[in-house]
Amino acid sequence: MRRQVPLVLCFLFGITMTIQYYVPSRFSEDLKSEVLNWGLIIGPFALVLAIATLVRLHYTRIQRRSENWPYSIVVFVGLIVMAVVGTVQGFTSQGISGGPFEWIFNNIQVPMDATMFALLAFFIASAAYRAFRARTLEATLLLVAALLVMFGNAPIGDLIWQKISPVRPNLPSEVRQWILDNPNLSSRRAIIMGISLGAISQSLRIILGIERSYLGGGE
């Protein structure tokens, strides 16, 4: 029974929402927004459970003095400060827009997010170094294509080319665009087609109750 009810619900909602995609009527649109609202209602309940796991995890880390445990105190400070400031400010006429709540967000979280994002530049450099080592034919092709694209992307690429040859002054940009529009785009489309077929296949398996691993596997 614990397994059958979710399977029946999955089948009914799966079929209903598939049909809904092809029916543009008002009733159909209302049904869709209603079902999406149910999903939104589940969210806050799940969030309470999620925060409880976070609190328990970091409490345990502090209690056991695990490696780098002082960072868990930072988690609690952040959690409590934002919750208190947001709640208190939420009761004012101003709401949570502006004031200390937004100030903390803009001046602490946003810069830290930006810092993490900035690390990506260095990670791209280290990943590119590994990928572009010309040890095999494929890696060599990748290296050549990457160099051509980089040369075409940088404004200095066309400038250098113009000094070398007056014929077709924008050749590096044209080559770059050709690589992006032809080999690159066609292979991306092939991947997207595969993903679409896989997604339909998986949806059908779930709707028909053949794929049950998401319920925990087994019978």
Binding site: I191, I195, G198, A199, R205, I210, E211, S213
Partner: peptide
């Protein structure tokens, strides 16, 4: 890559019915 993600559970579980859908894919 791509659809291999959706084929993975069938591949790992080796359940005949799921493998059938994989062939259909």
């Amino acid at each position: 890559i791509g659809e291999e993600l959706f084929a993975a559970s069938a591949y790992l579980s080796r359940e005949p019915l799921i493998m059938g859908s994989l062939k259909g894919q």
